[in-house]
Design a protein around this nucleic acid. Structure first.
Lengths: 125, 125
DNA sequence: TCGAATTTGTCCGTATGTATC
DNA sequence: AGATACATACGGACAAATTCG
């Protein structure tokens, strides 16, 4: 059931019915609207949070995430790249929202640079 | 309180006290051990799941994640790559563990291919 | 300035379902 | 068949922070 609600909200976001920065209905309202418990509503919203689709500003409400401007980073010869979830320390350092991975670029000498995945795109020039 | 338990378990994992593939105590055992509700235990374990530190094999138990063998994928000329968290549907499709991002490679014609980030490394040949 | 209302966060207890051993 | 273990859903209660009259 919580998946159905998550799918429903995700569709509203991806269709533009809920635009970036717009608030979702409150947990209580959603629970009453669909006749489910607040626990189940929170589970659905938790799903969207881990997907990085919404952010929560407590106790103001839950909002559709606003896209970050994208920076283009070239992948130099001999470098390789991977992605993972950040550590807590990295989350604070780069001020990452929930559900935002990091891109790790490793140079030939083993030096690693970390980039927030919601602001960076790798290209091969 | 659930954060304290999550920190405690995370320390046991990172210190090697709980090695890869080893099971965590069951939710019920943890709840009794620390005199907290199973709800709170589940919240703590949920935290570790979103961090990608543990996987759950229902209903066998919860285990410290075993690192995946890595496949090397070249980034062709004109392609670009980014990373994000998968949707629930993608998680099922690619059999992704929780807390595992996806690498999205976009070709020149706009075609997107999705790779599990815990098994793939991008290189520039 | 004060207090009420709103909204999310946390914790508890209970029950039932489902898959594994 | 029975025990075990995680998944899901319900309900209630209080805390913390913001907003607003």
């Amino acid at each position: 059931m919580f998946r159905q609600l998550a799918d429903l909200l995700r569709n509203q976001i991806e269709s533009g019915e809920l635009g970036p920065g717009e608030p979702l209905p409150s947990e209580l309202r959603l629970a009453q609207e669909y006749n489910i418990s607040r626990t189940t509503v929170r589970q659905a919203i938790g799903q969207l949070r881990t997907e990085g689709l919404v952010t929560v500003d407590r106790p103001r409400g839950t909002f559709v995430r606003v896209p970050e401007p994208i920076e283009i980073i070239p992948l130099a010869r001999g470098e390789h790249a991977s992605a993972r979830m950040p550590t807590d320390a990295e989350r604070r350092k780069y001020r990452l929202g929930e559900g935002v991975p990091v891109l790790v670029v490793t140079a030939g000498d083993g030096t690693e640079t970390v980039h927030p995945a919601d602001r960076v795109q790798l290209t091969r020039p």
